[in-house]
C-alpha cells in the first residue's frame, strides 16, 4: 500500500570538493525526491570552496521540478557567520532555519522552514514557530514516536508539514571545537580542511572496537546510518508528511530510489533495509530513537 509521504533531501553535512558537489546535485535532479535543502550547515570555513556550485545546483534542481530551500548555519558565533546568516533572505529562496539566529533576519509573515537542529520538542514550540511563519518542520532526530505523533497532529491542524529524519548518519552534537583538527593535532584556525579527507565523516570506535560515532569537523554524528525503512508505516500513520534523506558520498541516487519505491508500496521495508545496509558507510543501520531503547538500536535483523 502506498504511504502518503514524500522525500526531502537535507543539506550535505560533509566537506566535498566543488566537482563532487556538482556531480551530486546533477544526479539528484533525476531522482524522485520532492524537495532539496542545500547550503552549508556545519562549518563556515568550508563554504568558499564550493559556494559557486550553489546557484548552479539550485537552477538544476528547480528545472527538474524540485522545491529548493537554503539552510542556515547550525552554530553562528563569528561576525562572518552572522553576515552569512543575515544574507540568506537575499537568495530569494525559502530559508531552512537551523539556528534561531536566522529568525532575526526573516521578515514577519515570510514563510520559512525549520531544520532538525532547532529544538522542536512540543506543541507549544511548534505553534509559536507556525505563528511566526514556519510551514515545514523537520523534527529533531532524538524524538520518540509518541512525540512525533503529537507533533504531526498539531502540525496538521496548523498547516505545517512535519518531517522526520529518514536516512543518514544522525547529527548528534555541535561544538565550538573542531574534532577533525584535534585528531590531527592542529588548531582549528589552521585545520588545513582535513575534514575533506572523510566524505562521510571520520569513524570513532570504542576501546573495545565497537562502532560508535563519527566526527565531521565541529559536528559529531552517529556511526550508524539511521533508516526509517522499517518505521515508515508507523510514521505515515502518525501523520508525518515527509522523510528526510541526508546526503552520503556514494549510491545516494539508489538510496533515494529505494525510499521512493517504499513509499509507492512497491518495495517492502525489510527488502529496502537489506539493500541499504551494505550501502551505509560502516554498514550499520539504526532506528532506535523512534521506537527503541536507545538511538543506536536497530529494530531489524543484524548482518
Amino acid at each position: 500500500m502506498p504511504l502518503p509521504m514524500d522525500l526531502t533531501v537535507g543539506p550535505n553535512l560533509f566537506f566535498w570538493d566543488a566537482e563532487a558537489v556538482r556531480a551530486f546535485y546533477e544526479g539528484l535532479a533525476a531522482t524522485p525526491v520532492a524537495r532539496v535543502v542545500l547550503g552549508e550547515v556545519v562549518c563556515s570555513k568550508r563554504l568558499p570552496f564550493w559556494q559557486d556550485e550553489i546557484p548552479r545546483a539550485v537552477e538544476t534542481l528547480l528545472e527538474a521540478g524540485k522545491e529548493v530551500a537554503v539552510t542556515s548555519l547550525a552554530l553562528v558565533t563569528l561576525p562572518r557567520e552572522r553576515r552569512m546568516t543575515a544574507d540568506l533572505p537575499g537568495t530569494g529562496l525559502p530559508i531552512e532555519v537551523n539556528d534561531l539566529t536566522a529568525l532575526l533576519h526573516i521578515p514577519e509573515g515570510q514563510p520559512f522552514w525549520v531544520g532538525p537542529l532547532v529544538n522542536v520538542y512540543n506543541e507549544g514550540t511548534l505553534r509559536w514557530l507556525a505563528a511566526r511563519g514556519a510551514t515545514r518542520v523537520c523534527l529533531p532526530p532524538e524524538l520518540p514516536l509518541a512525540s512525533i505523533r503529537a507533533l504531526a497532529r498539531t502540525g496538521r491542524d496548523l498547516g505545517v508539514a512535519v518531517e522526520v529524519w529518514g536516512h543518514g548518519r544522525v547529527p548528534l552534537a555541535i561544538s565550538g571545537r573542531c574534532y577533525h583538527a584535534r585528531l590531527h593535532d592542529r588548531p582549528k584556525d589552521a585545520c588545513l580542511f582535513v575534514c575533506g579527507e572523510d566524505p562521510d565523516g571520520r569513524d570513532v570506535e570504542t576501546l573495545d572496537g565497537q562502532p560508535f560515532l563519527a566526527v565531521n569537523g565541529v559536528q559529531t554524528l552517529s556511526q550508524s546510518t539511521a533508516s526509517m525503512a522499517l518505521q515508515a508505516g508507523a510514521l505515515a500513520e502518525a501523520g508525518v508528511a515527509s522523510l528526510r534523506l541526508s546526503p552520503q558520498s556514494r549510491d545516494f541516487a539508489d538510496i533515494c530510489a529505494g525510499y521512493a519505491d517504499l513509499l509507492a508500496g512497491s518495495l517492502p521495508g525489510e527488502a529496502l533495509a537489506r539493500r541499504l545496509a551494505p550501502l551505509a558507510p560502516g554498514g550499520r543501520l539504526s532506528d532506535g530513537f523512534v521506537n527503541g531503547p536507545s538511538g543506536a538500536a536497530w529494530s531489524g535483523p543484524h548482518g
Binding site: L75, N119, E142, L172, T220
Partner: peptide, 21 residues
C-alpha cells in the same frame, strides 16, 4: 560541556535518555 548545550543527543544515542528530554 564540550558540545553546544541543548543541542546534544550523544547521551540518548547510547542510552535513550538525554539532557533535553
Amino acid at each position: 560541556c564540550v558540545m553546544a548545550e541543548g543541542r546534544c543527543s550523544l547521551s540518548s544515542y547510547a542510552t535513550g535518555r538525554s539532557p533535553n528530554m
